[in-house]
């Protein structure tokens, strides 16, 4: 992979030049300790040193709410003429979130390809940025602390400059469009990069041991820990909304006031909601909160492994930061592993 160097004093110029590749969206500061991906009007608002955004980048590809069809009694369901082809540049995406998108790609591809998702995916370029983990990050445990692909460019901070990995032809165009801003990587840069990435390992405060976790989860299927979490869980849906890999959605027909025409919409859903597994007639396959909590953990750490070969958790720490009941996935998994826990 080609790697070049972008001195930080050239960063603004480089970012300014990106607008011809699409509408720029990047992290901005929302509050003291909260950030979000937002449309950028003013480059100085971009915050590349951030811990995590409230919602992950999935919101750009699987919007929280979207119109799938417009309907009428005569014509049935017709796809909206909205322009899914608008170009975006998503700048400042962390490694864990890029892995999150790669996991969503697995779900929305396969035998049945979801074009709403993939059209947006194709029209959005991704520029990754390195990060310093905080005390809720456990991407290293989930093997998502580095990323090999799934981006066009990736910026790694080496103090005065960024090392820029060029992964796609589009990424190469972005660099060439402002070639004069970039320099060649020298030996000192390489040394600094190695020093930085070695140092980064030491920042991790929490660890989720993956080794034989699926087997342990099978063994602990009847564990009373699920009841305990069920007691604390509020079923508020927060963890699902903020999760970069939770993809469940609900679909409904929303009528106009004429009671005839309207839109078929989909919106994010959560397996923790009481009516999630409810079928017509009132039979609910997971009416107990503890069963729903268990299902969520099993799907992330066990079911997804069986389906796709890896857990669907990327260790971004969002659910840990935002759960009002302080349910902490790393604590839960550690508890379940511990031999003394019954």
């Amino acid at each position: 992979m080609q790697i070049v160097k972008l001195p930080k004093e050239n960063l603004d110029k480089f970012m300014g030049g990106l607008s011809k590749f699409g509408e720029i969206h990047a992290p901005i500061k929302k509050d003291e300790n909260t950030y979000l991906f937002s449309k950028i009007e003013d480059l100085s608002k971009i915050e590349l040193n951030y811990n995590r955004t409230i919602l992950p980048p999935k919101k750009y590809f699987l919007p929280p709410n979207e119109t799938m069809f417009r309907f009428s009694p005569e014509k049935g369901y017709e796809p909206p003429q909205d322009n899914l082809n608008k170009k975006y540049v998503l700048l400042g995406v962390h490694s864990c979130d890029i892995h999150g998108l790669k996991i969503l790609d697995l779900v929305f591809s396969g035998t049945y390809v979801d074009n709403y998702y993939f059209t947006r995916r194709k029209n959005t370029s991704i520029i990754g940025v390195s990060c310093i983990p905080d005390d809720m990050c456990f991407c290293r445990s989930m093997e998502t602390d580095f990323v090999e692909d799934g981006f066009d460019l990736f910026l790694s901070d080496i103090d005065d400059s960024y090392l820029v990995r060029i992964a796609t032809s589009l990424g190469d165009d972005m660099v060439r469009a402002n070639q004069s801003l970039f320099k060649e990587v020298d030996k000192e840069d390489i040394a600094e990069y190695k020093r930085k990435s070695n140092e980064r390992k030491n920042y991790f405060k929490i660890d989720l041991e993956l080794y034989n976790l699926p087997e342990i989860m099978d063994l602990e299927y009847e564990s009373k820990i699920w009841e305990e979490i069920g007691e604390k869980c509020l079923s508020c849906g927060t963890c699902s909304m903020v999760c970069p890999t939770c993809y469940c959605y609900d679909v409904f027909d929303q009528l106009n006031l004429d009671g005839k025409t309207g839109e078929r919409r989909r919106q994010w859903d959560s397996c923790l909601f009481k009516d999630y597994a409810l079928v017509a007639g009132g039979l609910n396959f997971r009416s107990e909160r503890s069963a729903r909590v268990k299902n969520r953990y099993f799907h992330k750490q066990r079911g997804f492994v069986a389906q796709y070969g890896r857990p669907s958790c990327v260790g971004c720490g969002r659910c840990i930061q935002s759960c009002p009941a302080k349910i902490d996935i790393v604590e839960v998994m550690t508890k379940i592993r511990s031999a003394s826990y019954e």
Binding site: L234, S235, C236, G237, T238, M241, S270, P324
Partner: peptide
Amino acid sequence: YAVCTECKL
């Protein structure tokens, strides 16, 4: 569902 869901969105 709860207000939290909308708040997060």
